[in-house]
């Protein structure tokens, strides 16, 4: 039995069929990059993994249990933006993750339990390279630093699955490659299972251990919404080794 099993998942909004017949299996520790044209349903799929949306048909099984139908601590998320809390400093933003579970009534921790959380938070802040900015508020950080913070937050809960929704889409190219390195290291070190939606095919190839391309197999020009997208390519990527094949594959995929 795989870590994540997607059993014949369909998703439609009214008459608009977005995804159809998804049957996929993902093992623990895989890094799945999801690409496709806009509106192809890759974000919808991510939202289903997150629990924000429910499959119309079929089921997603995580670690032997059907996914809960609301977001919870099993699944971490980093959005393109608005992932951090603007009213908290960097340190508070990371600490809040454990304060949620340790102080269920007050929401704040004090004394020794606060100290433990603080130490743990500082470790993750260091892991993402934000130590010099612990006392800053998010609005004082650059876009890249905010994303680092969002990643540190998510790591605090050691989620079974980390979901990334175009996490680097709003960043400058130079910063983006730094972030690629960071997320790659974190993935390897923490043995995370990651799903990432990106509109940048190259990013998908470079970063993932597996690439899914979402596209419609059947298309009825008279009724464009009659058929949904499926995963048309499911490519294993042996990390960064097949750079020569990369360009060929990009051509092949983008010609679709």
């Amino acid at each position: 039995m795989s870590f994540i099993t997607i059993n014949n998942v369909w998703k439609s909004y009214g008459d608009n069929l977005v995804l159809e017949r998804l049957n996929l299996e993902v093992e623990q520790g895989e890094f799945v990059s999801m690409v496709g044209a806009s509106g192809c349903g890759k974000s919808t799929f991510l939202n289903m993994l997150l629990g924000r949306e429910q499959p119309t048909k079929g089921s997603i099984v995580l670690d032997g249990e059907t996914l809960k139908d609301e977001p919870d601590a099993d699944r971490g998320i980093v959005f393109q933006k608005y992932s951090v809390f603007p009213h908290l400093t960097v340190l508070q933003n990371v600490m809040i993750a454990d304060e949620f579970s340790k102080a269920k009534v007050l929401g704040w921790t004090f004394g020794s339990s606060k100290k433990v959380i603080k130490e743990k938070a500082l470790e993750f802040i260091e892991a993402v390279g934000l130590t010099p900015a612990v006392k800053k508020y998010p609005h004082e950080l650059s876009g890249g630093m905010q994303q680092r913070l969002a990643i540190a937050q998510a790591l605090m809960k050691s989620p079974k699955v980390l979901l990334l929704d175009e996490p680097f889409g709003a960043l400058d190219p130079g910063i983006r490659s730094d972030m690629h390195e960071l997320i790659h290291d974190i993935w390897q070190k923490n043995k995370l299972t990651i799903f990432m939606v990106t509109h940048d095919i190259k990013e998908g190839f470079e970063l993932g251990s597996r690439l899914w391309v979402f596209d419609k197999v059947r298309n009825d020009p008279q009724a464009p919404n009659a058929y949904g997208a499926q995963v048309t390519f499911d490519l294993p990527l042996s990390a960064r080794a097949n750079k020569e094949d990369l360009n060929k594959m990009i051509e092949k995929v983008s010609s679709n």
Binding site: R52, Y82, K104, G107, A154, K157, P159
Partner: peptide, 27 residues
């Protein structure tokens, strides 16, 4: 308030009460 924030808080393990208290109230 961006829906992303509320979802993020839930993925960090917050209940409705804690989302109100620590995410919404101060904002």
């Amino acid at each position: 308030l961006p829906a992303e924030q509320l979802i993020k808080a839930q993925t960090l393990g917050a209940s409705t009460w804690l989302v109100s208290l620590r995410v919404i109230l101060p904002q």
